[in-house]
Structures are given as C-alpha cells and as structure tokens.
C-alpha cells in the first residue's frame, strides 16, 4: 500500500494535468499553474527539513571536532547571522525586506548586497578560468574527433576575432605545424604529417589570398554556427523532448518506479 498509493495519486494527477492541457475553460485552464503554486507552498515547508539537515550535520561536526569542523562553524555562523539580520530588520521596519536596510551595517539587504552578491560574483567569475582549462583539455588534438573540434573552434574564433583574419589564421597555421611536429616526434607520422601539411597549406593560402580570407572567414564561421552546430543542437533537443515525454508517460503509468521507495 505504501508503494501503491503514491502510484495511484501520480496516475490521477498526471492524467488530470494532461487532460486539462487541452481544456482552456476555467478552472481547468489554470490548473497546472495552480498545482505549481501548491508545489511552491509545499516547497516552503520542506525548506524546514533542509535547514534541519544543515544544522544537524554541521552542529555534529563542530561538536565532535571532526575534520574541517571550522568550515561548519562558518556555515552555522552565516546561517544564524543572516537570520539575526532578518529579525533585526523585521523588528525595526516591520518587514525583513525593507530596502532601507541596504545601507545599514548588519541589515538584511546589507548582508545580501555586501556578502551574498560578491560571493556569488566571485564563483561566477571563476567560470572563465574553468572554461580555459576545460578548453585546453578538450582541444588537444589527441584523436580525430578532438582535432575536428579544435579546427572548428579555431575557425569560429578566427571569424569572430577583432584582431583580424590574416594574423589569426597565421597563428592557427603555426599552431597546426607545431602540433604536427609534436605528433611526428611521438611517432605518429601520418597524423603529424596531415596536421603539419594543413598548417603550411593554410599559412600559404592566407598569405597568397588575404582579401579572400578576410571575406570568407566570417562566412565560414557563420556557416559552422548555423548549420552543423544548429543541426547537432536540434538533434539533441528532439531527443531530450521525446525522452522527457517518454519518461513522463512511464511515470504516469507507473512503469517507472525507481524514484519511489518501498522501504
């Protein structure tokens, strides 16, 4: 019964939402939105569960002086400090969401503006460095696929770089020749020769026909982005959409049950 009841509720709720999708008349038309509101209300209550878990976990670590307990202390200080700031602002203005607290040290919005926002910004800014390191690993021409990826990425960059097509292409040519020589040195003669020939050919072409290169580079970049890139992206999106529908039907019909506990 513990397992059957949730499946029955899921089936009824799922079928009901699917049917109301085709009925614009009230109260059916807005039912999906209303259910999302209910979910948000339930979510608000479950936040208590989350806070309970957080406090228990970190209090235990601090109490037992477990490894890295100091970070847990910082977390608890942040949690209760923000709570205190909210209560103080609430007591003063009748609401914790008073904008005037933005300029008061220890106010609720002050905490948000001067602690939360810079911390979030710092984490987001780190992304630039992570992109650079991931790109370096992804674009190393170790395999044929990675080489294709590298060439496509460089062509797109050449088409978009403000430094100019000719210098950018020459840099690419030098890089390809260097990669080719490296492959030759590690005893991959065919792959190395292809890369080096590609680099030399590209360099010669751009020096021989600079005007054509300037004209063609943005077109190549545009084609890569609008044809192969869009086609691959749409293929993934169609797969994701069908997968989502299939998964939803499996859940509604009770075929997919892995998310329900039987204990």
């Amino acid at each position: 019964m513990k397992r059957t009841l949730p499946l029955i509720i899921t089936f009824i709720a799922g079928v009901f939402v699917v049917v109301t999708f085709f009925i614009p008349r009230e109260p059916f038309g807005s039912l999906e939105q209303r259910m999302l509101v209910w979910y948000s209300i339930l979510g608000g209550f479950t936040l208590l569960l989350g806070i309970d878990s957080l406090i228990k976990h970190h209090t235990r670590k601090v109490a037992r002086r477990e490894k890295d307990w100091f970070y847990s202390l910082v977390t608890l200080f942040g949690l209760f400090g923000t709570l205190a700031a909210g209560i103080v602002t609430w007591a003063k203005y009748g609401t914790p969401l008073e904008l005037a607290s933005l300029n008061e040290v220890g106010g609720f919005f002050w905490v948000y503006k001067w602690i939360m926002v810079p911390l979030q910004g710092t984490m987001f800014a780190l992304l630039a460095f992570f992109i650079a390191s991931a790109a370096y690993r992804a674009f190393r021409a170790r395999t044929f696929d990675a080489t294709l990826l590298l060439i496509a990425a460089i062509l797109v960059m050449i088409g978009r770089l403000s430094m100019g097509v000719v210098p950018a292409t020459l840099i690419l040519a030098v890089l390809l020749v260097a990669a080719g020589i490296h492959r030759l040195l590690i005893r991959k003669p065919v792959f190395g020769a292809v890369l080096a020939a590609l680099g030399v050919g590209l360099g010669v072409l751009v020096l021989a026909f600079p005007q054509d290169a300037i004209r063609l580079a943005p077109q190549v970049q545009e084609w890569l982005m609008s044809v192969p890139q869009t086609a691959a992206r749409r293929g993934i999106l169609i797969g994701v959409t069908l997968g989502t529908i299939a998964m939803s039907i499996r859940i509604i019909l009770g075929i997919e049950r892995t998310y329900i506990s039987s204990t």
Partner: peptide, 30 residues
C-alpha cells in the same frame, strides 16, 4: 550521458521489459 541517454538510464540499468519497451517506442517516435 547526452540528453535522452539520461532518461534511458532506468531502462538500461534495470533491463525491465516494460521500461525497454517504452525505450523502443521512443526510438520509433524519433
């Protein structure tokens, strides 16, 4: 796991006939 492969996980891992059947119907729809 690219997109739909994630949704195929339960069928793939459990090898349950009903889940595999639904996976196959997904391919036909595609």
């Amino acid at each position: 796991l690219i997109g739909e492969e994630l949704f195929a996980a339960s069928a793939y891992l459990d090898r349950d006939p009903q889940l595999l059947g639904s996976l196959k119907s997904e391919d036909i729809a595609k």
